[in-house]
């Protein structure tokens, strides 16, 4: 969709990110999709491919409060959410906010920590608030979590339960840069990292406004029907044990709205749905174990499903 005119603000943000990130434009786009749609991203990748750099660039571009949590097995929920400490001078408990109280949070290696701590994070993501010592603290808005998960280490990890994975709007892989890109990476590594020089494109207020605009992107009934058709098909698919839920349909629609918005459209196309479906749906379906043994991945399943659903090309007549 290269020929499409990007939304100017988004264009600037992406340009900002590209200053520090080489290639990986689609990852940047998808992260923006999640940010604009008010969702969260699960990045499944090995360390060292530039996740942190990208999130930081994104946070800088929207002038957001960036926090990073490195999950370890001994991390406690209070380390994430914050803790109340007794202040002897004031004779009362004072709340010290944890790293979750930022706008953009990088939750690194989320599968390394105990389920208790994981669920503290997941609760925050779902409810946009945390409860500590009986007091509910609203999280800041916008609130965007980019969690990473190392897919190759299993020793000493606590994989996220599949049912909890659908807290994330999108799941994606970053992947390695290609040869030219990697050379360019080396070139840049010789200089001072430009991340400190990045100028914000919009402030948080502006970002909230964009989020509002995204909600108003028009989704025609034909598109809704298309979304439902796709999600429905995952439920009856042969190698699928559990298909995507209606929450998956909602997620697909919201993501599509944001994606359309990024490309300067105020309405959603079937192309948006086709593009986003693997990212939105693949972590929401559970494959049968036979299928796993055969090496079928959920991305493949989603792609096959999408290929089988006819694209709506006529108006629904009412």
């Amino acid at each position: 969709m290269a020929h499409e005119q990007l939304n100017p603000t988004i264009d600037k943000i992406l340009a900002n990110i590209e200053k520090v990130m080489i290639g990986k434009r689609n990852v940047a786009e998808l992260s923006l999709v999640a940010l604009l749609a008010g969702g969260h991203v699960l990045l499944e990748d090995v360390p060292g491919v530039g996740k942190t750099m990208m999130v930081r660039a994104l946070a800088k571009s929207v002038n957001a409060n960036f926090r990073r949590i490195q999950f370890t097995p001994d991390l406690l929920p209070s380390d994430v959410t914050g803790v109340s400490i007794y202040n002897p001078k004031e004779m009362e408990f004072q709340f010290r906010p944890g790293p979750l109280m930022g706008n953009i949070i990088l939750a690194d290696e989320i599968n390394r920590t105990s389920p208790k701590t994981q669920s503290a994070l997941l609760e925050g993501m779902e409810e946009a608030s945390v409860t500590i010592d009986g007091v509910t603290h609203k999280l800041q808005k916008p609130f965007f979590v980019m969690a990473t998960q190392n897919p190759i280490e299993y020793e000493g990890t606590y994989p996220l339960p599949e049912a909890q994975l659908d807290r994330f709007l999108l799941k994606m892989k970053m992947g390695y840069p290609d040869i030219h890109e990697e050379i360019e990476v080396l070139n840049r590594a010789q200089k001072v990292p430009p991340i400190e020089d990045l100028q914000p494109v919009i402030d948080l207020e502006g970002l909230r406004a964009l989020q509002q605009e995204v909600k108003e992107v028009f989704v025609d009934d034909t598109i809704k029907r298309y979304i439902v058709d796709i999600v429905n098909r995952t439920r009856g698919y042969g190698s699928v044990y559990l298909g995507a839920s209606p929450r998956g349909s909602i997620a697909l629609m919201k993501a599509a709205q944001a994606y359309a918005f990024i490309f300067g459209r105020d309405y959603v196309l079937p192309d948006d749905i086709q593009y986003l479906a693997p990212y939105v749906l693949s972590h929401r379906i559970i494959l049968k174990s036979e299928a796993k043994f055969e090496g079928i991945t959920s991305e493949e399943v989603v792609n096959r499903v999408v290929n089988r659903v006819p694209v709506p090309v006529q108006r629904l007549v009412k």
């Binding site: 020929h3 025609d220 034909t222 598109i223 105020d266 309405y267 006529q314």
Partner: peptide
């Protein structure tokens, strides 16, 4: 075709 299709997309997916 692309230009025409853009119009048609507006017609069916945007109703506008």
């Amino acid at each position: 075709m692309t230009r025409l299709t853009h119009r048609y997309e507006q017609y069916i997916y945007n109703q506008n």
